[in-house]
């Protein structure tokens, strides 16, 4: 009985061990199969490529970065077309347009090959099962090597030409050779550079001054700064407006004066007579001369009268009167001072 119990316990333990191992195996297989879209509702579509770059069965298919399926088969249909069978989840198929494109890529920098489905335009209908999508042509290593080959050939030609030029320069042919070998040219160049440096320093100084000037222009203390002031600008506007009005008035005045002068010149008035009659001028001249003589006589008479009056001041009869006048003047002056 005891031995039987032991055997039964061993059997149970063995069963647990086996079940655990098989469960782990089944779980692992299920998870791997699930990753490869083996379970669930799937649809089959095709993608055509010219070059699949080592794509293998089982590689992932992505749409918008999501794993939506796997590569189920690869077959060559002619010398330049390879058709890849893709198993896509039916849920994802409801979002892929008929003009979507397949592009080969790698998972990471050096990862497995993957197929990226690039979304198509919205106005085109949705993709159905068994439909075919086209692919972008990917730049292959051969393409890059071919381009590199052309580049290398060009580089070789350039190098050959450069060699010819260098040899010509070394043998003293051409302008460049002359420039390189002429020692005075170097001195001139050095001098030019020195001048250029001085010029640059001066220019720098000048720019600094100009900068100061430009800064000062913003200052309202000077004319331009004042001009930049809006109040001053308005005032100037007003002044200009007034000047314009004055100018108009002046024009009118000048026109009137012009008319007056014309009338004076051509009319029968006194001014025309005065300006044109030469005898009248002579008469006036004579009159002025006699007036001048008369005034001279009057001047002399007044001097003599002054002398007479001075003499009267010192006369006994009139001295009192003049003193009285002086006293009144003084009184008047004191009053004004007070």
């Amino acid at each position: 009985m005891k031995a039987l119990d032991k055997t039964t316990a061993q059997k149970i333990k063995l069963a647990i061990f086996v079940i655990a191992g098989l469960s782990l195996f089944i779980l692992g297989v299920y998870l791997i199969g699930n990753q490869q879209s083996m379970f669930g509702s799937n649809a089959r579509i095709f993608a055509t490529f010219n070059n699949i770059n080592g794509l293998k069965i089982g590689n992932n298919v992505r749409y918008g970065g999501l794993n939506v399926g796997t590569v189920k088969g690869i077959r060559m249909v002619n010398d330049s077309t390879i058709v890849v069978d893709l198993t896509i989840k039916k849920d994802a198929l409801g979002y892929i347009r008929k003009n979507a494109k397949a592009a080969l890529g790698t998972d990471g920098l050096v990862g497995n090959m993957i197929i990226n489905i690039v979304p198509g335009s919205e106005e085109i209908g949705l993709l159905n099962a068994e439909d075919t999508i086209h692919s972008y042509r990917r730049i292959t290593t051969e393409d890059m090597l071919s381009t590199l080959n052309v580049t290398n050939e060009n580089a070789a030609m350039l190098t050959a030409d450069l060699l010819k030029i260098t040899r010509a320069i070394n043998s003293g042919e051409g302008t460049i050779s002359y420039l390189l070998k002429d020692s005075t040219m170097a001195l001139n160049l050095e001098q030019s550079i020195r001048y250029f440096r001085q010029t640059a320093a001066s220019t720098s100084k000048m720019i600094s001054h100009m900068d100061d000037l430009i800064v000062s222009l913003n200052n309202k203390n000077n004319v331009i700064g004042l001009l930049r002031d809006s109040v001053t600008a308005n005032q100037l506007k007003s002044v200009v407006s007034n000047l314009e009005t004055t100018g108009n008035d002046m024009n009118k005045l000048v026109a009137n004066l012009n008319a007056t002068v014309t009338r004076a010149k051509e009319g029968d008035g006194a001014i025309n007579y005065l300006s044109n009659d030469k005898s009248l001028v002579k008469k006036i001249d004579t009159s002025v001369n006699s007036l001048d003589a008369t005034l001279h006589n009057l001047n002399e008479a007044s001097i003599k009268l002054n002398e007479n009056l001075e003499a009267l001041k010192h006369n006994i009869l009139f001295r009192g009167y003049f003193k009285k006048l002086e006293k009144e003047k003084e009184k008047q002056l004191e009053k004004e001072i007070k």
């Binding site: 692992g28 791997i32 199969g33 990753q35 490869q36 089982g58």
Partner: peptide, 18 residues
């Protein structure tokens, strides 16, 4: 971790080793 493990595994890894 286990999602990454199983995403990198294929039947070609499990079946031959078993």
């Amino acid at each position: 971790y286990f999602s990454e493990v199983f995403s990198s595994l294929e039947f070609g890894d499990v079946i031959p080793s078993t």
